[in-house]
Simulated scan of single mutants.
Amino acid sequence: MNRRSILRATMVGAGAVALPFTTWSAAYAAPAQNGVGPYGPLQSANAHGIQLPAGFTSQIVARSGQVVPGTSYVWHNAPDGGAVFANGTGWIYVSNSETSAGSGGGASRIVFNSSGAITGASRILSGTNNNCAGGKTPWNTWLSCEEVSLGRVWETYPLGGTAVVRPAMGRFKHEAAAADPVRRVIYLTEDETDGKLYRFIPAVWGDLSAGTLQVLVAGTGTSGSFSWTNVPDPDGSPTATRYQVSGAKTFNGGEGCHYANNTVWFTTKGDNRVWQLNLSNNTYELAYDDNLVNPGPAPLTGVDNITGSTFGDLYVAEDGGNMEICMITPDHKISVFARINGQSGSEICGPAFTPAGNRLYFSSQRGTTGSSSGGITYCVTGPFRT
């Protein structure tokens, strides 16, 4: 099996099944550089103001403050992190709401049949604050993370069930989560200028009610080896979790996090970087740095949410920048896949593929209005390589 086939096989159901093959370390020996995208150049903006490569189309799935078409449910404000779950008859797209508890907060879901038509929508979490990103677990729950001081992780049940808080996963300014079924851990990013990268080891895999929180320890450079050390007090009070372990490596504004193929990719918005942890040999390196694109200009700024396709491509959304979703391919080339025009006061959130890999959902958090009530959730369909 060649490297591309291995990557394709192990990215399917990323976060659910990943086999212990070789990591992307060889492909990412140096940070990604500008290249021609696999789908060709962007075309003119369509009716939604979105530029896509030839053969791709977009549709509006839901708008904040408006009833989701075909349902009686009003879509939440400020849609943020998201994921897709197979449900046996189609799929479910889950989206966080990055607003205060008084404005709704929490998370919602939209249910689709096998042809992509909406069949339902409902809330799966409420009464929580600034639910920014999160992550999908292999047992089909959604970890909705609060991006506030002493924020919590809530385990929600898109397929049915009552949300439960998971304090053992630490209290800090949570951002994203990514499940590693090989090591049976959950990786967690922290949105602070001096944030850290954590992993949670459940006492029982599949049960997040108890376990051990650890923080990544490494040098100050952009590459090297790393290890994990227990966080003495996951409650984060009176001493914040990021200050409890000497030698814990600092990351400037942790954002999205994605696991596949014995590798974790996570983004830091403060320095526009995509980091890569090579779990097979416990080393880290840069997968992308906007200051290291030569020749420029750097296509990706405002680095935020990240996901992967069934083929093995990474898709990274911008918070600001040019309102783009950029692709990083396994041969370390970066290009622009999509651009939203006329929404400079917004950010792109929650990119997630359907199980078949032929539809990509994402949101513009504040849409054309620049306010949380103007959010728009989209779906892009086309010849994604799978």
Rank of each mutant, 00 (worst) to 15 (best):
K333D: 09
G106R: 05
A260G: 13
L150H: 15
S72E: 11
L314P: 10
Y187W: 10
V182R: 01
Y157V: 08
D319T: 11
V293N: 02
Q244R: 14
A78T: 11
S108Q: 13
N322H: 06
N282H: 14
L188S: 02
M11P: 00
T283F: 04
N87V: 02
L52R: 01
T23S: 15
G170H: 11
F226N: 04
V36C: 00
G374R: 07
S225F: 11
G82Y: 08
L42K: 11
R199M: 09
D207W: 00
P202W: 12
G370D: 01
V148F: 03
V293Y: 03
R183V: 02
T156V: 12
L143R: 13
N87C: 06
P158N: 02
V84Y: 13
P234Q: 05
V153D: 04
I306N: 07
R3Q: 15
P53F: 11
T239S: 08
A107V: 00
G13Q: 13
N272R: 09
T141N: 11
L52V: 13
A47F: 01
S371R: 10
A248L: 10
A203H: 00
A210E: 13
L7Y: 15
V182H: 00
T307Q: 02
R385Y: 08
G55S: 08
T10Q: 13
D80S: 11
G270Y: 06
R273F: 03
R359K: 15
N305F: 06
A16Q: 07
A107N: 06
G247F: 10
I118N: 01
W205N: 07
T222I: 09
A168P: 02
T377E: 12
V68K: 08
R166I: 01
V245D: 14
T128V: 10
A78Y: 04
N278M: 00
E318C: 11
Q51F: 00
G256E: 12
G206P: 07
A177Y: 03
F200T: 02
A62F: 10
K196H: 14
G321M: 05
D319V: 08
V264R: 04
F384Y: 15
L279F: 03
P20S: 14
V245W: 12
A86F: 08
P38I: 06
D313M: 09
A317Q: 01
F112D: 06
R242I: 03
